[in-house]
Design a protein around this nucleic acid. Structure first.
Length: 292
DNA sequence: TACCAGGAGAGCG
DNA sequence: CGCTCTCATGGT
């Protein structure tokens, strides 16, 4: 039985939120304002409306707290925006995609996804994850006429898949990292659930013990799964954005940028990061269109 | 065709 | 420490 629910929301740019590179499984469903994807073990279709966000599941659900949490509906968004530094780059970034939100994703899916993200373009990350889910994720019910959908494969499942079979999902050298991390998570060598209450620094240190997880990926998981809104992942795009916007004609080291980010962007630095990330990518896309 | 992608890890001086 | 190289694959 399909169920529909409406979350009242304002300043929520669903398209930017689902396509900005924090989650990799959402797909436009024809209409630009309609998206289908998976949240945990459920197939979900989301529609952006004037009142907020309309959600539809394939199977009746008793309550909607899980989705409200994932979408972070209750967040005081104005307070986040107000906490940003008042400089020109931030103003431009917020103007470019006001309403962009950070999701709160399941830790294992987020961790595994970002292990697969290293030196891959977002389009390719999506392809790899789609293959992985199709081959190793449990099937879930979908409304009639919709494409088949799968859960994200569990750590226990992936720990049991051979490296060769993982490589067949186009992930290349990341296969060994994913498999070994899956094994350690399964063996409780790393307790992803237990990390929820720890300090940000200790969660980061714990994540970085895992193979294939360095500072950047750990910060992504802190930000997108553990809700540490001060975590500030710096990737090649952020090096470009911070260098051009805040250090013109200089060549700051990665450490210098990390240090700058930690003091400059305030308590919601991670949110500021995502705005800058989206902004610089939009600018790059616009530039490439002009070049053609 | 070259270059590069939401990096990490290992080796080197 | 900081630098360089490799890892695998495909988009642009």
């Amino acid at each position: 039985m399909r169920t529909v629910h409406c979350f009242p929301a304002r300043d929520y740019d669903l398209a930017a939120t689902l396509s900005c590179g924090q989650a990799f499984r959402w797909q436009r469903d024809g209409d630009a304002q309609v998206w289908t994807g998976m949240v945990g073990s459920r197939w979900v279709r989301l529609r952006s409306t004037v009142q907020g966000i309309e959600a539809e599941t394939a199977v009746a659900v008793p309550e909607w707290a899980w989705l409200e949490h994932y979408l972070q509906i209750g967040l005081d968004f104005d307070q986040v925006i107000r906490s940003f530094p008042e400089d020109e780059p931030m103003r431009a970034a917020v103007n470019a995609c006001r309403g962009l939100r950070l999701l709160r994703q399941p830790p294992w899916e987020c961790l595994a996804s970002f292990i697969l993200s290293s030196t891959k373009q977002i389009v390719q990350i999506r392809q790899i994850i789609a293959l992985l889910c199709e081959r190793y994720g449990e099937r879930v019910p979908v409304p009639s006429g919709c494409a088949p959908a799968h859960k994200f494969p569990t750590a226990a499942c992936l720990a049991a898949v051979s490296e060769v079979d993982l490589r067949a999902c186009k992930m290349g050298f990341r296969a060994r990292y994913l498999r070994e991390t899956a094994r350690r998570v399964t063996a409780q060598d790393c307790d992803l659930t237990g990390l929820a209450g720890a300090t940000t620094d200790s969660v980061r240190a714990e994540l970085m013990r895992l193979p294939g997880v360095g500072r950047k990926i750990a910060d992504c998981v802190l930000l997108f799964a553990y809700g540490r809104l001060d975590a500030f992942p710096i990737d090649v795009w952020m090096i470009k954005a911070l260098s051009e916007l805040y250090f013109p004609r200089r060549r700051p080291s990665l450490d210098r940028l990390q240090q700058f980010a930690a003091v400059h962007f305030g308590p919601h630095a991670g949110y500021a990061q995502q705005y800058l990330f989206h902004y610089i990518r939009l600018a790059a896309k616009a530039a490439s269109v002009t070049t053609k």
